[in-house]
């Protein structure tokens, strides 16, 4: 927001529209939607206390902002909110024994090794 709010994305007036028509997409990439959906699905299944996740998210954002400030004078450039969410969720999954570091890396390598053009 260093250049001020983008008013083309922020209709100050006009009817409240459904999220899709709010002038901006809820998610910029499919993985952002997936990690959000996984987090909420687990929460609604009663698998963790929201505060546990929130504290991790706050820590991830704080760390990320420190990195950004060290790298550039423009504090909002390259801001990766959903990357912070993903980091927070990975920590939660590790702590709860859902995805330890080794298990996760093994699965990542397995997915990366898929041939190009694989079917999702």
């Amino acid at each position: 927001m260093t250049s001020g709010p983008d008013t083309t994305l922020l209709p100050a007036n006009g009817p409240a529209a459904p999220p899709r028509a709010n002038g901006e997409l809820v998610f910029d990439a499919p993985w952002q939607a997936r990690i959000f959906g996984a987090t909420v699905a687990l929460y609604e299944a009663g698998r963790f206390e929201w505060n546990d996740f929130q504290q991790r998210l706050i820590a991830a954002i704080t760390d990320h902002e420190a990195v950004i400030e060290a790298e550039t004078s423009d504090e909002s450039s390259g801001y990766d909110y959903w990357g912070c969410w993903l980091d927070a969720f990975r920590g939660l999954a590790d702590e709860n024994g859902w995805a330890g570091a080794t298990t996760l890396h093994d699965m990542e390598h397995q997915l990366e090794a898929r041939p190009a053009g694989h079917d999702h």
Partner: peptide, 9 residues
């Protein structure tokens, strides 16, 4: 990473 986490869960 997201896909890996989803698969594991």
């Amino acid at each position: 990473r997201t896909e890996a986490l989803e698969r594991l869960l």
